[in-house]
Design a protein around this nucleic acid. Structure first.
Lengths: 217, 217
DNA sequence: TGTACATCAGTGAACGCGCGTTCACTGATGTAC
DNA sequence: TGTACATCAGTGAACGCGCGTTCACTGATGTAC
């Protein structure tokens, strides 16, 4: 009975093939979007027959779910690593932007158009809340609490999502604002809605960030 | 030779069938996303054979482009109607939100995950800039110009997009911020990223709007 | 008003394609004695 | 170290499906005289 962590050669091989399948999947997604992802096409790229992939993934849906999980995991790791390095909210914002620019379709797999009826498994939403937790921590270190507002009062009684990261309403509000503003600029930029407008998206991103961090009230 | 605007019965019929095709297309998109849209399925829903639709649309791509055009047109009309009714930026924000909530997948067809390689025809980008123009006008009426910032200085020399709506840099900046923040909250809400967090998205939207409109500096 | 012709909507068959997935089988790799 | 057996990766054929699109044709609707 092998220890859970130890890997037999066969397990190693399996893990490597699985990883290779995912790499080709990401390439396909980058090239034509997630809806164009095809198991048979991946198999062909790897020089295997189509059915061979079913040794590694039970179905196309399982592969996609796994990709979504990996994407969340990758972003959460990047954010946590930055936070561990002492990054403040501005630092996290740039970490997220770099992560998104590195592979826009990976970003959109998480934050883009939802597929009606699809619900991510629970462990995935768990990873998503890791990201929020990092934002909350960085937001708490930023500045003293702001004044009460209707929304902050509302948040007092509606903070199901904060888990083991309690924070005053102004900090919760700040984290939500940060998230939605970063996402707003980023997703417009990545979707190409700024192309042809002439200005530099990086400067706009920086300006949004400046405004966001100049806390008042 | 009939006047361009006059419609023969056949033209009327054609227009009606085209409209009906589009209606079914929107239903399919709402139910399963744009990538699942199928001409054959639409034909079946209408009780026709598949090839019949080729009398009305040259291809699947042409239909989708037409849907994108209609979506932009619909949003631009809604925004312009609100502006004509005297709505300020806050009013426009709510108009946009209502429009998006009425059909989330229609919103995402415009502002969601881009399909790599797809480029909207020129007239569509023209409609998109109508929307920006309305935001610029409403933003100009809001408050005096703010102070200079690096991004506003940058905008002085990079305002290709403003067309015949000249405005001081602070107003351009305000319109961009408005757009990206409204989109940020809306797209997270519509994609379901707030579900399970407990708070009311409408209140968060209102809070973002309040912050956005409390101009300072 | 009636007839001859042109226009055009819609059909059914067909083409070629790629998809996800199942299944019986071969051959190589690892395990137990 | 060698043999017998179990495990497992990968293949090729096949199923059923739906897709976009083309084409030759029928039948109805509109137009011209």
């Amino acid at each position: 009975m092998a220890a859970t962590g130890a890997k037999t050669p066969r397990e190693r091989y399996r893990a490597q093939v699985r990883a290779e399948v995912k790499e080709h999947a990401w390439e396909q997604i980058a090239a034509a979007g997630a809806s164009a992802l095809s198991l048979n096409a991946i198999a062909k790229q790897m020089g295997m027959s189509g059915p061979a992939l079913y040794r590694y993934f039970a179905s196309r849906d399982e592969l996609i779910t796994e990709l979504i999980r990996d994407a969340y995991r990758s972003l959460a790791d990047a954010v946590r690593a930055a936070a561990a390095d002492g990054a403040d909210l501005a630092g996290l914002a740039h970490t997220i932007r770099e992560w998104a620019l590195a592979d826009p379709q990976r970003y959109f797999l998480i934050y883009g158009t939802p597929v009606p009826g699809y619900h991510a498994p629970e462990d995935v939403t768990g990873i998503a809340s890791e990201i929020m937790a990092a934002l909350l921590d960085a937001g708490a270190a930023l500045a003293p609490d702001g004044s009460a507002t209707p929304f902050r009062t509302h948040l007092e009684g509606h903070r199901d999502w904060t888990g083991d990261h309690p924070a005053p309403p102004a900090v919760l509000h700040r984290a939500l604002s940060f998230w939605s503003r970063v996402h707003g600029v980023l997703s417009l930029e990545l979707a190409g809605h700024f192309t042809g407008m002439g200005f530099d998206p990086a400067l706009f991103f920086a300006a949004e960030l400046d405004d966001l961090l100049s806390v008042r009230a």
